[in-house]
Amino acid sequence: MRVVVAPDSFKGSLPAARACEAIAAGVRRAAPGAEVAAVPMADGGEGTLDCFLAARGGEVVEIAATDPLGRPVKARYALSGDGRSAVVELAAASGLTLVEDVPRDPVNAATTGTGELVADAVRRGAREVLVAVGGSATTDGGSGLLRALGVRFLDARGEDLPPGGAALARLARIDDSGVPPEVRAARFRVACDVTSPLVGPEGAAAVFGPQKGASPGQVRELDAALTVFADVLARDRGVRVHDLPGAGAAGGTCGGLVGVLGAEPSPGAPLMAEITGLPAALDGADLVITGEGRVDGQSAAGKVVSAVAALARERGVPAVALAGGVEGPLDELHALGLTAAFGIADGPRDLDGLKERAAPLLAATAEQVVRLFAR
């Protein structure tokens, strides 16, 4: 029997690699001779860096960078073993958690630190860069990131705009003549799990601005500024990102990367499946077990469980999800290819108790699942 184990992390409890170990232990109890292929997964958010390293090998690089408010911070990214690929998690240098100690400043917060990580990776030889967005403190359209790569954002007098999303309201021209050749030669991809456009009532400022501390007036200010940014991109570069699905991710960072660097946006979970080699691992499998902290109707919208189920269905492989909690209906997940979903709780437990015993509970539930399929 060949079983593929491909869970996301169980947030606050187990990283994806540990979840793989627990599930694999249960599989082997039920089928001692089973071949188990462990493929830790992520959806482009937390854990993306670790999953990349597990799949590709390589190293974690830590450098001095800039937090969303311009303060010094240590941040890390992943560089593949051959040095040609890198993964940068935007939250490492531009995340909301980095500014919890001070009043939030949504109109001036910038993604400069993320750009410093990208620039360092490219200088070291990376020519494929994945930017995993999510958890940002910024709504600057990725302008800070792009500045760190040599792009200038100029007003009508030809002067550089200050950092932050609000300043884009005075944008007249984007000058990329200072972008190094190695940056131009790199392929950029953006992993995101939202479909919000850049601007408008469903855009970056309107949907995510309040989470970053923006008042209703600041939301309007930021949306207007991002609209100016999008207008300049459309006028000078022929790239329309106003209503591009996903362009609003991380305060418009995805839209800025697409418009200026030609980055390729992609839903995070399918992209990580490609990077980790999950499609090849599923060939010839008898069963795939996936999972995450919670499985419900929203899991069909780009989460790891949905991506694994869809790939399994293409290959005729049964797909079972394990989770701390399962709440239906799961009709969309079943339509995508999920065979069944099971909660791992073995009785009444509070959340802390469930988190503490997540590993043995995962193993026990995986064992019972495999006993249904073992032959």
Rank of each mutant, 00 (worst) to 15 (best):
R2Y: 03
R2C: 05
R2P: 03
R2A: 04
V3S: 03
V3E: 00
V3F: 05
V3N: 01
V3Q: 03
V4D: 09
V4I: 15
V4Q: 08
V4Y: 14
V4K: 06
V5D: 06
V5Q: 06
V5W: 05
V5C: 09
V5A: 07
V5Y: 11
V5E: 06
A6R: 05
A6M: 10
A6N: 06
A6P: 14
A6V: 15
P7L: 10
P7F: 14
P7M: 08
P7Y: 09
P7V: 08
P7G: 13
D8T: 07
D8H: 10
D8Q: 08
D8K: 13
D8L: 08
D8C: 09
S9T: 07
S9I: 03
S9D: 03
F10K: 00
F10D: 02
F10V: 02
F10T: 01
F10R: 00
F10P: 00
F10C: 02
K11T: 00
K11P: 01
K11S: 03
K11W: 04
G12D: 00
G12C: 02
G12L: 01
S13Y: 09
S13P: 05
S13V: 05
S13D: 07
S13T: 06
L14S: 01
L14A: 02
P15A: 14
P15I: 04
P15Q: 03
P15E: 12
P15Y: 02
P15D: 15
A16I: 12
A16W: 11
A16V: 13
A17H: 11
A17Q: 15
R18F: 03
R18Q: 15
R18D: 15
R18N: 05
R18G: 08
C20A: 04
E21I: 05
E21N: 09
E21Y: 07
E21S: 14
E21A: 15
A22S: 11
A22Y: 10
A22H: 07
A22M: 07
A22T: 05
A22V: 07
I23D: 09
I23Y: 13
A24Q: 01
A24K: 01
A24C: 06
A24Y: 04
A25K: 12
A25W: 13
A25P: 09
A25I: 09
A25L: 10
A25R: 15
G26M: 13
G26Q: 11
G26Y: 15
G26H: 13
G26A: 13
G26C: 13
G26T: 11
G26F: 08
V27S: 10
V27W: 09
R28S: 13
R28F: 06
R29V: 06
R29T: 06
R29M: 13
R29P: 08
R29E: 15
R29H: 09
A30W: 08
A30F: 10
A30Y: 10
A30D: 07
A30M: 12
A30S: 14
A30N: 07
A30E: 10
A31G: 06
A31T: 04
A31L: 14
A31R: 12
P32C: 12
P32N: 14
P32W: 05
G33K: 11
G33N: 10
G33E: 15
G33H: 12
G33M: 09
G33V: 06
G33T: 13
A34S: 05
A34H: 03
A34N: 01
A34F: 05
A34T: 01
E35D: 14
E35F: 07
V36Q: 04
V36H: 06
V36A: 08
V36I: 09
V36L: 06
A37N: 00
A37P: 00
A37C: 12
A38N: 02
A38W: 00
